[in-house]
């Protein structure tokens, strides 16, 4: 399969009052056409910032370095007006909070149709028809009526469906969904994930699912990437990481997720708090919370290295098996 996105050595830094803070360091990965990759980590792990950087949407004080190849073009460092030819067309993004991500003063139809007018050169009436069609596809009842509504007249779930419709209008190669279900009711979450799965399969869109919830990952994703302290600490297929985690942090995440943890017989939250990016611990950033740490972990940072010579990778010094030495 061909890769639609290849990211190489991505760094994201933010200039704060006194210091520079590195939110993402040396991130490299590739995304194959049509696959679904989950990016998992606690808040502050840099997972959202990495993809905002790829979209050119960092806050004013943010700066990205490295490469993100969308086919032949590098998105990092590209000026905004040139990025606009790809954003919304080849690579689209859905945000966490559907309540604030739609413009409150514009009708749903306007906010959707403008994408088609901009990228496909549709005339307004043709765009309007395509919008209604897409709203129907994402499961919005009475799409004609809803198209003329303002966002505040729709429920949260409905708004997220509108966001999905908006992102998929141009059938992009890549869809980045940043915590798309976090703000929704549990019952709506499952429907929404189902919708993602069917639509991206149908359009051949590669999906990046950014989440802190392993329960979301289980049914949907093919591959996953676990991030901690701005770095990728483990990557592999979902099955590999769920049944045979090789990084203590991945293991900890599994144990702290209710219905995944059943296999481990008990719920076991990770001790301590996620690190502040302004003061990352020395060596391996996870060592203060790690049950398997030893001297090397304090001093040197482990590299992301292939595991068993396959496509898996992990960044950890500990060589023993995690399974039999679970620590209370």
């Amino acid at each position: 399969m061909t890769n639609v996105l290849v990211v190489d050595d991505l760094d994201v830094t933010f200039a704060l009052h006194q210091a520079e803070v590195k939110a993402v360091s040396d991130l490299s990965f590739s995304l194959a056409a049509g696959e679904t990759m989950a990016v998992v980590g606690e808040s502050g792990s840099g997972k959202s910032q990495a993809f905002l950087a790829i979209m050119g949407l960092l806050a004013r004080n943010g700066r990205a370095a490295g490469r993100a190849m969308l086919g032949e073009v590098d998105l990092i460092g590209m000026p905004g007006d040139r990025l606009d030819a790809y954003r919304g067309k080849d690579i689209a993004m859905i945000f966490q909070d559907p309540m604030t991500s739609l413009n409150p003063s514009l009708k749903v139809r306007t906010q959707l149709a403008e994408v088609l007018v901009r990228h496909q050169g549709f005339a307004p009436d043709k765009a309007g028809r395509a919008v209604i069609e897409m709203l129907e596809r994402v499961g919005i009842p009475e799409p004609v009526k809803r198209a003329s509504a303002y966002p505040h007249e729709l429920s949260g779930g409905m708004r997220q469906r509108v966001m999905i419709a908006m992102a998929l209008l141009c059938r992009p190669k890549i869809l980045i969904a940043d915590e798309p279900t976090t703000a929704l009711d549990v019952t709506v979450q499952a429907q929404m994930l189902e919708l993602f799965k069917t639509l991206t399969d149908e359009f051949g869109t590669a999906l990046v699912l950014i989440t802190h919830d392993l329960g979301v990952v289980a049914g949907v994703a093919d591959r996953m990437m676990v991030m901690y302290g701005g770095r990728c600490v483990e990557t592999g297929t979902v099955d590999e990481l769920f049944y045979d985690p090789r990084h203590p942090y991945t293991l900890g995440l599994l144990h702290s997720t209710p219905h995944v943890a059943k296999r481990a017989q008990r719920l076991d939250p990770i001790q301590g708090l996620p690190p502040s990016l302004e003061r990352l611990p020395s060596g391996c950033a996870f060592h203060p919370r790690c049950a398997f740490r030893f001297e090397t972990c304090f001093a040197e940072r482990p590299q992301l290295l292939p595991v068993d010579g396959g496509a898996r990778g992990r960044a950890c010094w500990y060589q023993g098996s995690l399974k039999h030495e679970e620590v209370a």
């Binding site: 979209m55 007006d81 954003r87 909070d97 403008e114």
Partner: peptide, 21 residues
């Protein structure tokens, strides 16, 4: 705001974002 970020993610261009959003 988030909705201006959404508009930017749609590739609308600065002028349209200012004028419409």
């Amino acid at each position: 705001t988030n909705y201006v970020r959404t508009a930017r993610s749609k590739g609308l261009g600065t002028r349209l974002i200012l004028a419409r959003h």
